[in-house]
Each structure stands twice: as C-alpha cells, then as structure tokens.
C-alpha cells in the first residue's frame, strides 16, 4: 500500500494541471485571439441572437426560404443526433420516398428529377448547416416566385454563397442555408 499516497497525490496534481489549468489556458487564449468563434459564431441582429452560422435551422417548409436538410432531431440541439436507421430500414425507405416526392412537388420539379442525396437523408448531427450547391439551385424558382424577385437575382445570390472545398480540396462544395436566407431577407 506504499503506492496509495502517490496515487492520490499524482491524480490530484494531474487533475489540477489537465482538468483546471489546461482548459482555463485554452479558454484564455481562445477568448483573446478568436472571441467570436470561441463563443459559438453567433449571429446577432439588433442585439438579438438569430442563430449561429455553424448550426442549421428548421425552415418549416416556408416557401420564402431555402430549406435545410431533414433532421432526426428537428434542429433542436438538446440533444443533437442522427436517426441511426440502416440501409435495410423500412422506416427510412418510406421517409426517403416521401421526402423525394415532397421536394419535387414543392419545387415543381419533373417526376424522375434527381433529388440530391442530402435533401432526402437526415444528417449525423441533426444540425447540419449546409446543403450542396445543386440542392440550393433546385430551390431557386420556388424562392424567387414566393418573394416576387427576379430569378436572376436569387440565382446570383446562391452562387455568391457557394463555398468551395476548403483550401481547394478539403471537404465538399456547399452552401450555408442560414447565411443564404439571411442575405435573402437583406435584399428586401
């Protein structure tokens, strides 16, 4: 039992070092160097938080907005998560069929038009802020019509918000839905 005291002492000291000093140091540096990012990349309008540029929102099928992906948690971050349904799930098959049909109807797409995969499958976090550029382009007509805006203007805006893969090759090309919708509201 000669080892008992060192066990207590070293656990206590390493707790102080890795459980207190380390996270406080990181917080200190982060808050000074990246204040906005360490606080959650919040977007404020007239002092009110309207969301975070990193966290997707439910657009509730409002035709005036571009829609986000389906979400297993309805974009409620408490707690985040995916559906965990498998590729042999009848529930998922039915949901995919329904979402495909709904997306085509809402955007007046012809039967048989390819609907981008992310618009019919839910994300892992349930909070995915992005859709693919194709998925945004397919929604342009609907949004332009609902807002009485020229199609060109909306299409140009979408292209402005297409992000390339980071550093040219990391990740996927994508559109941040919330930022695009906020810019859309700015137009009017």
């Amino acid at each position: 039992m000669k080892q008992l005291y060192p066990a207590f002492a070293i656990l206590a000291l390493l707790t102080l070092l890795t459980g207190v000093i380390y996270p406080l140091t990181v917080t200190g540096i982060a808050q000074v160097v990246f204040p906005k990012k360490s606080d959650g990349s919040l977007i404020k309008e007239e002092g009110i938080v309207v969301g975070s540029s990193l966290i997707g929102q439910n657009m509730n099928n409002d035709p005036r907005y571009f829609w986000s992906r389906p979400s297993a948690v309805g974009y409620n971050p408490l707690p985040s998560g995916g559906s965990n349904l498998s590729s042999t799930s009848a529930t998922l098959e039915e949901a995919v069929g329904q979402r495909t049909a709904d997306f085509r109807t809402a955007n007046q797409l012809a039967e048989g038009t390819d609907v981008p995969a992310e618009m019919v499958f839910a994300s892992g976090s349930g909070l995915d802020p992005h859709i693919s550029p194709e998925a945004a382009r397919l929604q342009i007509d609907r949004v332009a019509e609902a807002r009485n805006l020229p199609r060109e203007q909306v299409a140009d805006l979408v292209e402005d918000f297409v992000e390339s893969p980071q550093l040219g090759f990391l990740g996927q090309p994508r559109v941040n839905v919330l930022l695009l919708n906020l810019a859309l509201d700015e137009l009017q």
Binding site: T27, Q31, K37, L42, V49, G51, M59, D62, P77
Partner: peptide
Amino acid sequence: VSQGVVQNFSDPVEATTLTGETQVLPQ
C-alpha cells in the same frame, strides 16, 4: 477554436430562428 469549435463557460444561448422558433445553443 480557430475553425469555430466553442470554448467558453457561458450559459446556453437562446436564439430566435428565422421562422420564429426558439433554438437553445449549448456552449
């Protein structure tokens, strides 16, 4: 953190979304 991972000791933030819902953002 430089990429946007949160690091703070704040309370969860309440946001009012574009469609008027309340979204609580954990920190």
